[in-house]
Design a protein around this nucleic acid. Structure first.
Length: 382
DNA sequence: AAGACACGCAACCGCTTCTAA
DNA sequence: CTTAGAAGCGGTTGCGTGTCT
C-alpha cells in the first residue's frame, strides 16, 4: 500500500494553496497521505495536550493540515485504542447484523465494535461484505428482491450463510426482536455491566495495543521507532502538563518492558469533571441505553471495580488499572487526565448520542441494540 | 517479465448537526 | 432567534498493491 515516506506532493498528496502565491503559511494546507513525521507530530500533540479544537490542534502541532484532516487521521489511524488487522468472523457477523438494523450508519455500527472505525467498517462493507452478499444472493434461489435490498438498506429477506454466518439477515419488521434473540447464540455470562474494559476474550479478542498506530508494515518501518520512542516520553510529559489541566502527575506511565501486549486502559479518578468513565477507556463507548447506575457507580468512585473479565481490575485508590496477566502491563494515567481526548471519542460523548430515542420504522432500535449486546463474543454491553 | 485489471484502503468532499456567542 | 464555526458523518475518489493473463 502507500508509503507515506515516499509521498511526493503530487496527485492527492499535495499542498493546497488557498490563495495562489500567497505568502501566508496558514493558507498552505497539506493534503493527501500523512507522512510519519506528521503522524508523530499529531501523536505527540494529542498525547501531551489532548483534544481540543481541531483547527487549533493542527496549528499548535505544527501541521500544515486542516483540523478536519487531523481529526480524521487521529480517529482512523493514530488513536491508541484502534484494533488493526482483519475483521474476525464474529466481527463480520456483527457488522452484518448491525447493518441490517442500522443501515449505513457506520458510526453507529463502529460504536459497537471496539477498536474499529466507521471508515474501516464502511470500507470493509463496501469491499468485502457487500460483495459476499451479492454473491450469496445471486447464487441462492431466493426471491428477486434479495440482491438489492440487502445491500443498501435493511432487508426483509434472509440471506443465507453469508460469510459462514449462522444467523439470518434481520428483517425490518416487528418480529426482528424475536428472531434476533432466537438466532443469536446467547451467552449471558459474557456480558456484564462492567465488561467494557479493553479486555481480551477468546472471541472478542479486543486488546489495547499502544503500538497499533505503529502499523507501518505498509510504510517505512524505519520511521516507526521514532513513534515507539515517543510513546513513553509523551506520556511522561502529560504528567507535567500545566497545572490547570493536569491536576496530578502521571505517576506511572507504561511499563514498556514487554511490547507484546499492552492491555487494559487508563484509569482516572472520576471526580467532578466530565472526564472519561472507566467504562469508556480504550473501549467501546457506551450507549445511552446503558443503565445510568453504572455511571453513577463510577462517579461514586467505587473502588476495586472488577471487570467481568478476570484479567483486569481497577483500583481506584491507586489510580491503576491492573492487569493480572503476566504478559501485560499497567497503564496508568494521572488524575484528570483527559482519557477521552486521547481516545478521540469526542468531547461530548457524541458516540452516545443518536441511539437514545432512535427508532427505525415501527420498532424500538434501543431494544434491538440491547439484544445485540448479548452477542457471545462481545465482552461489552451496548 | 510486463501490462491490465481488480481490490483495498486512506483520505477528501460536501452536507448535516451541534454549540456557543 | 440567528449565525458562524466546529465537529460529525456518509459517500466518493484515487492511488498502491496484488493477481491474473
Amino acid at each position: 500500500m502507500r508509503n507515506p515516506a515516499d509521498s511526493i506532493l503530487t496527485g492527492k498528496d499535495r499542498l493546497v494553496n488557498d490563495n495562489n502565491n500567497s505568502n501566508n503559511n496558514k493558507s498552505k494546507l497539506r493534503k493527501g497521505l500523512w507522512s510519519p513525521e506528521e503522524d508523530e507530530k499529531l501523536m505527540r500533540y494529542m498525547l501531551t495536550s489532548g483534544q481540543g479544537c481541531w483547527s487549533d490542534i493542527a496549528r499548535n502541532a505544527g501541521l500544515q493540515r486542516c483540523g478536519k484532516s487531523c481529526r480524521l487521521r487521529w480517529i482512523n489511524y493514530l488513536r491508541p485504542d484502534l484494533k488493526r488487522g482483519a475483521f474476525s468472523p464474529q466481527e463480520e457477523d456483527l457488522i452484518i447484523h448491525l447493518h441490517s438494523i442500522l443501515g449505513n450508519r457506520w458510526s453507529q455500527i463502529a460504536a459497537r465494535l471496539p477498536g474499529r472505525t466507521d471508515n474501516e467498517i464502511k470500507n470493509f462493507w463496501n469491499s468485502t461484505l457487500k460483495k459476499r452478499l451479492k454473491l450469496n444472493t445471486s447464487t441462492s434461489s431466493s426471491s428477486p428482491n434479495d440482491s438489492n435490498s440487502s445491500e443498501d438498506q435493511p432487508t426483509t429477506n434472509h440471506v443465507n450463510n453469508i460469510a459462514g454466518m449462522t444467523t439470518p439477515m434481520m428483517p425490518m419488521h416487528n418480529d426482528v426482536h424475536d428472531i434476533m434473540t432466537s438466532t443469536i447464540h446467547m451467552d449471558s455470562s459474557c456480558s456484564s455491566s462492567t465488561s467494557m474494559h479493553a479486555t481480551t476474550t477468546a472471541a472478542g479478542n479486543y486488546q489495547f495495543d499502544p503500538f497499533c498506530m505503529l502499523d507501518y508494515s505498509r510504510h517505512d518501518m524505519s520511521h516507526a521507532d521514532s513513534l515507539i520512542n515517543l510513546m513513553p516520553t509523551c506520556l511522561t510529559q502529560v504528567g507535567s502538563m500545566g497545572s490547570s489541566e493536569a491536576g496530578g502527575a502521571l505517576d506511572h506511565i507504561i511499563n514498556l518492558g514487554d511490547y507484546g501486549v499492552l492491555e487494559a486502559a487508563a484509569g482516572n479518578k472520576m471526580g467532578h469533571h466530565q472526564y472519561l468513565e472507566k467504562d469508556q477507556l480504550f473501549s467501546l463507548p457506551q450507549l445511552e441505553s446503558r443503565s445510568n447506575n453504572i455511571e453513577e457507580n463510577n462517579m461514586n468512585s467505587a473502588n476495586d471495580i472488577k471487570g467481568s473479565s478476570s484479567t483486569i481490575s481497577y483500583n481506584n485508590n491507586s489510580n491503576h488499572f491492573m492487569n493480572n496477566s503476566s504478559t501485560t502491563t499497567c497503564f496508568n494515567m494521572a488524575d484528570n487526565f483527559k482519557g477521552e481526548s486521547i481516545l478521540g471519542f469526542g468531547n461530548n460523548g457524541q458516540y452516545q448520542q443518536g441511539v437514545e430515542n432512535l427508532k427505525m420504522g415501527e420498532w424500538d432500535l434501543e431494544g434491538l441494540m440491547q439484544d445485540i449486546s448479548s452477542f457471545p463474543f462481545l465482552d461489552f454491553q451496548v
